[in-house]
Design a protein around this nucleic acid. Sequence first.
RNA 1: CGGGGUGUAGCAUAGUGGUAGUGUACUCGGUUUGGGACCGAGCGGUCCGGGUUCGAUUCCCGGCUCCCCGACCA
Length: 417
Amino acid sequence: MRQSRLFTKTLKEAPSDEQAKNAQLLIRAGYIHKEMAGVYQLLPLGLKVVEKIKQIVREEMNNVSGQEMLATTLQRKDLWERTSRWSDEVVDVWFKSELKAGGEVGFGWSHEEPLANMMINHISSYKDLPTMIYQFQNKLRNELRAKSGIMRGREFLMKDMYSFAETEEQHEEMYEASKVAYTNVFNRLGIGGDTFVTFAAGGAFTEFSHEFQTVCEAGEDITYINREKGIAINEEVLAKTDLSELGVTQEELVETKTAEVGNIFNFGRQKGEEVGLFFKNDAGEKVPVWMGSYGIGITRVMGVVVEKFADDKGIVWPESIAPFKVHLVALNTDDDEIRDWSDGVYTALQKLGVEVLYDDREARPGEKFADSDLIGIPYRVVVSKKSKEAGTFEVVTRANGEVRNLTEEELYEDFVE
RNA sequence: CGGGGUGUAGCAUAGUGGUAGUGUACUCGGUUUGGGACCGAGCGGUCCGGGUUCGAUUCCCGGCUCCCCGACCA
């Protein structure tokens, strides 16, 4: 991508109505546009990051035999009435509307009910089990107060997966496999070392659920963590947790601010029963399906990564989800020789399959470096009169500032896997 | 939903009951070219509705917006 053609522009100052660091930086660098409180458009750079995150999640979900689909945003009132969750008193984040033809619809804040209902058409025998489905979808939640930039919005992108099992044992197998898949996801996203499987409130069906909590100052949760033992407990269930059973004492746990990036639930058989999702077991008996639910907040993860790795100059992306791998910055572009040369390097890198953002703009070096730092692409390659004379390129690693001088040949070798 | 604040140009800000100022961004000209450089010339603005007033961006009332604290977060 030639930066001269990128329609977004960087800002020196963040809009005054944004306090959250993640939103300030993402807006300044041109990744997102704020549409209203808690609602952000994804601009080209932001969309690239989101697609990278999605791809990692997709690969790991496919790896545990999840099957991707896409549900609708509009949802049926009667399905939610079946589980007593249509009422605003029970679920206070509903967006609802009326059909001109008569009747009401809801906008999906979750897809448990519709997808469980849909599976009535596809699950009738124990031979159809186990199975898992997932999707990436915008969730709409009428939050009383949006906050923390893209970390708690009214419209956000989430991966939600649902497992359907014959027995508790079969359910547990998928649940544990998903836990591993989630761990892989967060490792690949670069936040694995600071993300903990956390005991949390289980909702209506079980005593506990498991959350994936990432250490983050901007997070909304308080988690008690023991890093050595890998134990984490959400503050909300600390009182009713049997610590001795886990092999820790209260003193060994450190109170930490965290952000919930994932949550997995065991629904037991209750959801299947309520929705009417039954199957025939091998004895010919009609039994409700055992269900689980598994979520990852895709756009929230993007916010958490920005919060965790940004420095005073701007965003620092882990290589796995950066919008581009290389930021090719050309200086002295008024010199035709330099321009031809940098154009050539751009073309060569692209041919090698390296994702490059090419700053070919007519701008001064200082401005280009400042923009480059702000946008946060992992490697900056500088082409200039100076590098031309030296016969090497300056390659700067954004995360640690390390500078290497590579010849053109070394450069191509370095960026090809 | 309770409390507190806010609203002036694309963005950030100043000020005023009587012609609304600055920075940045943008346009044009010139100088410059390894950390948001400089000089000159331009374009562009008072959230919405009502009231008070000769006159309201300013004062009053109402609404909306956005931010923060709390509550909520299945």
